[in-house]
Design a protein around this nucleic acid. Sequence first.
DNA 1: TTAATATATTTGTCATACTAATTATTATCA
DNA 2: TGATAATAATTAGTATGACAAATATATTAA
Lengths: 144, 144
Amino acid sequence: MPTEKFSMYSYLLDRTARRVKQYAQRRFNQENLDVTVDQWLILKNLNKGVDLSQSELAELTGKDHPTLTRIIDLLCKKGLTERRVHPGDRRSFTVHLTEAGEQSVVVWSPKVAEIRMKAWENLTEEDYELLKKILNKIYSNLDL
Amino acid sequence: MPTEKFSMYSYLLDRTARRVKQYAQRRFNQENLDVTVDQWLILKNLNKGVDLSQSELAELTGKDHPTLTRIIDLLCKKGLTERRVHPGDRRSFTVHLTEAGEQSVVVWSPKVAEIRMKAWENLTEEDYELLKKILNKIYSNLDL
DNA sequence: TTAATATATTTGTCATACTAATTATTATCA
DNA sequence: TGATAATAATTAGTATGACAAATATATTAA
């Protein structure tokens, strides 16, 4: 006997995720951090000194390939990343953080972390852990 | 001292919400329910015998006005809703479920509820309640 | 080695999200 | 009343998300 409450939970989840992203984006804009929240996620994942292929980046960031291609296009246009030919596979690129990209990550990481904190105010460590557990459970329930 | 873990939680939230929507949409398509998840949300909110203005619908469903306008456009094109002049305010429309729209809601509600359940398998009542509480907390932390 | 298959990326299309600006109408106040 | 401000909806522009199909290159198998 299906219950409608699960539709309600789905709605709450969607609405909350949107607001979290919207809040962060507005703060990015206020601070004149000239990237989107999704672009930032890519930069952050590149900042390990390791160049990654687009496929690897897509996997890490949970983006599909067309979306990732377009995000990289924009980051390259902004001069924050560049595509380099993959040694040994001409189908592939490695995405490389430029000097400017590196600088952005270094300079902005603390501010971004601070912005991201806001959503989780008034929650306990236990809440974080439980939320993480529940979200991962949901995610794996829908394994595609 | 800002911590990066909150960026991680934000990422998990976003990723999970996307997968929940994606799963539902795929099931909608498989079942030949010819609306999007977001369009369905609108239909469902109209199915109380009460016509709502677009502003009211936007408020109820958490959509912004431009998005709502376009969703209503599509629903009207599909013959599931129609715009009616608001008696007493010529700026406004009331959105009305057509006969076909009513039928869709009646026919598909149980299947949609069933589809929506899938995400929440293996979670306890307590998990639901806590998740709801936490999501609402986050939402209100970011009051805009 | 050639033919079939698989993989990495891109392109195209539609839907949604957010912002800013516009239009039409209504409400308010000097 | 008449100017100003507020509200409802729309339009336009950019970014992301999902899906399908195309392109180029690699890999595998007959």
